[in-house]
Design a protein around this nucleic acid. Sequence first.
RNA 1: GGUGGGGUUCCCGAGUGGUCAAAGGGAACAGACUGUAAAUCUGUCGGCGAUGCCUUCGGAGGUUCAAAUCCUCCCCCCACCA
Length: 429
Amino acid sequence: MSDNLIDVLEERGFIEQTTHQKELREYLEEPGRTCYIGFDPTAASLHIGSLVPIMALAHFQRCGHVPIALVGGGTGLVGDPSGKTEMRKLLTREAIEENSVGIKSQLSRFIEFSGGRAMLLNNADWLCGLEYITFLRDIGRHFSVNRMIKAESYKMRLESEEGLSFIEFNYMLLQAYDFLTLYDRHDCRLQMGGSDQWGNIVAGIDLIRRMRQDTAFGITFPLITTSSGAKMGKSEKGAVWLDARRTPPYEYYQYWVNTDDRDVERFLALFTFLPMSEIRGIGKLEGAELNAAKRVLAYETTRLAHGAEEAAKAFQAAAAVFGSGQVDPGILPSSGIHRQDQTSAAASVPHSHVSLDELQQGIPAFKLFHQAGLAASGGAARRLIEQGGAYVNGNRVTAFDDLIGVDSVIDGEIMLRSGKKRYHKLLVS
RNA sequence: GGUGGGGUUCCCGAGUGGUCAAAGGGAACAGACUGUAAAUCUGUCGGCGAUGCCUUCGGAGGUUCAAAUCCUCCCCCCACCA
């Protein structure tokens, strides 16, 4: 492979910190290396916050190496306190087992697991059978409590009111032991992770040095925040998930289209595989052109998470309701996005059904908006309407109890809108 | 185990008998301005077909015309002591 992973990651903005810069680069010159990242099975789906590590593993694979995605089935039972102000709820084994399954299927969209090109392991396999005394004598003796309590990852908790429980204090040992195990079994000498993982990664590197007299490496990613300061992956409805059942592709696409101007270039580099030669300078575009770049960003990220077909549908649905779906061929030419408006029946704007009977009676507007999910309650819907934020087929609703009836049906549909950008289509049946 | 301090609406946090659906901030939503961006200003921000009714202040009881506020018991958190 021509490119060194370090160069790729550096150029695309993935690197916060690395250990042994020079040796690491040399180590990665040779193809077929292994590297692991841990994923917490605390939910049944990964969300956008995990995208950076996922993409990093994918790049690792593209550079000719063998990534290991490690599901924390064992560590999840303990809970990582790093950077957290509160102790996490302990999950049951069953829940973690279930979640692991979902995570595996999501990862396989980004990483090719067939033919031994990547591995998916679960640390429950070696952690759950550990014997306490043996573990303490073999592993525990290499850890200095004096050093551990100075670790940044524990600091916040040690200073907080809630404190740090003993089970969480052990987390670092377990993660270090993971690294050691993967080193022994798969010759894995590189671990990557979020910047909050630095302490845990270094602990593993130390353990390998002490027990195997060998050098291992670590890379951490910066915490990705939006330019307005928010953590990645939160939308008005909560986390943006990779699971289509939790966050439909259309919403996923919308999340990315709504990217802040200042983030477009950075996000294209981080969250798509488009060549950097095309991405560079995109941030300087303005107005319509920058919006087109956002559409490409949204299309590409949606394609990665949900496939080309869903991405195209989301793109078309957006073009249908918002208009202006054009993307100039000069912008990010490598993207497979359709360059023209393609209003299509396959459009996947959120929708639901209403019966003709109900419509003949007429449905009060505020009830309709509530039912369609555009307002959290009847009261919220009334407020929405009173504030002039509710539209039926593009016309503002003037009174909360306006009756919506058959005369609002156009081509078998009624298009509801809340505010400027939340659409909901009612199909009459 | 002892002593003291706490648990308030999505989050932080005021409130120590009626004027409390509960200050203030954040988040969020809507309007104006725009480019499905940001910033700014304004409004909204428990539920209800609604100038009223209902449900909320850790849980269960109680006192009172009236309780987030007082009393009893219980649960949980924190600090110091052991």
